[in-house]
């Protein structure tokens, strides 16, 4: 019982972070049909920005806010000045460009921030809560992780479902030409979409880093899990990304708790293959046809 509870709690905390990362991938995929391989190093860079501020004596929260803000800016810059460059050509060009960016950002981080391991703080503590005299696997930082991701998700839902701007962004994602004919400034919407995606990616970067060690490739493993979560959810569906992230977090936590933690990457691969074989459109595949 204790073991199961631990597994579930760890799974959920891990799952929301995968969910956030998957959501960042999905936001870009559905709008541009590009898998943004640079998402992880972008989040790595913004986490370093937070770390530099925190190490310079500023509060965690200032670092946190600075990281999210620089995520927003970095996302916009990448879309406007890198991806836009090859827009209108085949999507594969942009994907390869994001792979190139992956390498460039890595190298840049190693030069600017160094490649040694540096510890990253976690607010609200990393000690499990006490219930009676048992310690459960839920930490203050774990609660913060879940709440932070939930707040961002709710914010995105409100933006997309409840505002005119969100409506314009969704329209641009579905059909750029029709959107332009309806007066939507599609280019701006894409820039904003990349910015928001990078903000969500930065959040996952901060949460992964919390209480752990940061180095230029600390996010790279997350790409795999985030991608599996996104595929699990259908790549096209933000809700699917969130559910996929949670499912993946729980499954991997179960594997790690009951089978062996060394099998986690293999389990992720098995899940990915199972989804692609049994339900290639993902669990949330919409039956609707998509005009591309």
């Amino acid at each position: 019982m204790q073991q199961l509870l631990t597994t579930v709690l760890t799974g959920v905390t891990l799952g929301v972070v995968y969910a956030a990362f998957a959501l960042a991938l999905v936001l870009i995929w559905r709008a541009t049909r590009i898998v943004n391989f640079a998402q992880a190093p972008m989040a790595m860079i913004t986490t370093y920005i937070a770390l530099v501020l925190i190490d310079a004596g500023y509060s965690y929260w200032l670092g946190f806010a600075a990281a999210l803000l620089s995520g927003l800016v970095l996302g916009a810059v990448v879309e406007r000045f890198v991806v836009r460059f090859v827009s209108g050509k085949s999507e594969i060009n942009a994907v390869i460009l994001t792979l190139g960016l992956f390498i460039v950002l890595h190298a840049l981080a190693a030069i600017v921030f160094g490649s040694r391991y540096r510890s990253f703080p976690a607010p609200f503590g990393l000690r499990g809560f006490q219930i009676g005299d048992t310690t459960i696997a839920l930490t203050g930082f774990g609660v913060f992780t879940v709440v932070a991701v939930a707040v961002v998700m709710v914010g995105l839902v409100l933006l997309f479902r409840g505002t005119d701007l969100g409506l314009r962004m969704r329209a641009s994602a579905f059909n750029q030409e029709v959107s332009r004919l309806l007066g939507v400034k599609v280019g701006r919407m894409l820039t904003l979409g990349w910015a928001l995606a990078a903000l969500v990616g930065s959040l996952s970067g901060l949460l992964i880093a919390g209480g752990g060690l940061v180095h230029p490739s600390y996010m790279d493993g997350v790409v795999v899990y985030g991608f599996v979560a996104a595929v699990l959810g259908g790549l096209d569906s933000p809700v699917g990304a969130v559910v996929g992230g949670l499912l993946l977090g729980l499954s991997l936590s179960l594997v790690s708790g009951y089978v062996g933690s060394e099998l986690v990457p293999l389990a992720a691969l098995v899940i990915l293959m199972a989804v692609l074989l049994l339900k290639p459109g993902g669990l949330f595949a919409s039956v609707r046809e998509r005009r591309v």
Binding site: L167, R170, A171, V178, S179, L182, G183, V184, R288
Partner: peptide
């Protein structure tokens, strides 16, 4: 206003959202 060939319904949005986009095009609510 230009209604394109093949109509250009945004099928993933609701009917009302499609209509709202029409008004947004002339920069109104």
């Amino acid at each position: 206003a230009h209604v394109p060939e093949g109509r250009g319904v945004l099928a993933e949005l609701t009917v009302e959202e499609n209509l709202r986009l029409g008004a947004l095009g002339s920069r109104r609510k």
